[in-house]
């Protein structure tokens, strides 16, 4: 009599072994990150730093790609409008220098002169490499500390230092999604709390009759009055009794190569 045997089924524990390996690795990495956050940051930053250094030295091959498809006429018109804008900005710069000097002289007379304790730092990584609104800069150690303010120019503040390692620091922008930042509307002096929406944008919801208009400047509380953002759009609807004010950090922060860190 011919016997037929059932085929041996695939051992079921193979799938369980895979799940177990995933869970073990997850727990190991979680514990490593939880118990030794600075150590892991230092290791990963040390490995990444040479890669970033090479990346920053190589010019972006796609930077001229979009311009290649623009028509000559568009480029000529764009060039002319940029020249006009440049001329008016140069005049404004002269006015600014005069007013700045007058402001500094007044502060010095009142004994509140600006202390020049800012350190120049280079941005080595940031959005869009980072999925968050964070930048990595090339100073760390004893030069800076957590909580130091970060600027992209003399009067535009963008964030604070959140983490410091031996040679690098992590900068968190005020515009990080969900982050609340106290600010003052420079025109009226009223205080508001801006909510970060990511990508150098803020949001502010206020009653409809609140005196906030397009172009208003929000400053960081303090004597130095550093600019946090400028109103770029005000969204009002007839049904709602509130309006949403959208504020943006001036300039293009994501193409900025240098930040200034002010020691506290």
């Amino acid at each position: 009599m011919k016997m037929s045997y059932l085929l041996k089924s695939k051992p079921k524990h193979e799938y369980r072994a895979k799940i177990l390996s995933v869970i073990i690795l997850f727990i190991s990495l979680y514990i490593l990150q939880f118990l030794f956050p600075s150590f892991t940051k230092n290791i990963i930053y040390s490995v990444s730093r040479p890669v970033w250094a090479v990346e920053n030295k190589i010019p972006n091959p796609f930077s001229k790609f979009v311009g290649f498809f623009k028509s000559q006429n568009n480029l000529i018109n764009q060039n002319l409008s940029l020249e006009d804008e440049l001329s008016s900005l140069k005049l404004k710069e002269i006015d600014y220098d005069l007013l700045y000097k007058e402001n500094q002289d007044l502060k010095n007379e009142l004994g509140r002169g600006k202390s020049n304790n800012r350190i120049l730092s280079r941005v080595i990584s940031g959005p869009p490499n980072s999925p968050y609104d964070t930048f990595i800069i090339d100073i760390g150690g004893s030069d800076v500390s957590v909580g130091d303010k970060v600027y992209i120019s003399d009067n535009v503040i963008v964030g604070v230092i959140q983490n410091v390692t031996f040679k690098n620091s992590l900068v968190e922008l005020f515009s990080t999604g969900g982050k609340k930042t106290q600010s003052i509307l420079s025109r009226t002096g009223a205080s508001y709390i801006l909510i970060g929406r990511g990508g150098s944008n803020f949001e502010l919801v206020v009653p409809k009759d609140t005196d906030v208009i397009w172009g208003d400047v929000f400053v960081y509380p303090g004597l130095s009055s550093s600019v946090i953002g400028i109103v770029s759009y005000v969204d009002t609807t007839s049904q709602s009794s509130f309006k949403t004010v959208y504020i943006k950090i001036p300039g293009n922060i994501f193409s900025s190569k240098n930040f200034f860190v002010e020691n506290q």
Partner: peptide, 26 residues
């Protein structure tokens, strides 16, 4: 592909700062 866990860990280590939940990538 277990290496994807390592890369999630790298993302968190490099760029994450939320102390309420530091391990989103992982």
């Amino acid at each position: 592909y277990l290496e994807v866990l390592f890369f999630g860990f790298v993302f968190d280590t490099l760029y994450s700062y939320h102390f309420s939940f530091l391990h989103l990538g992982l």
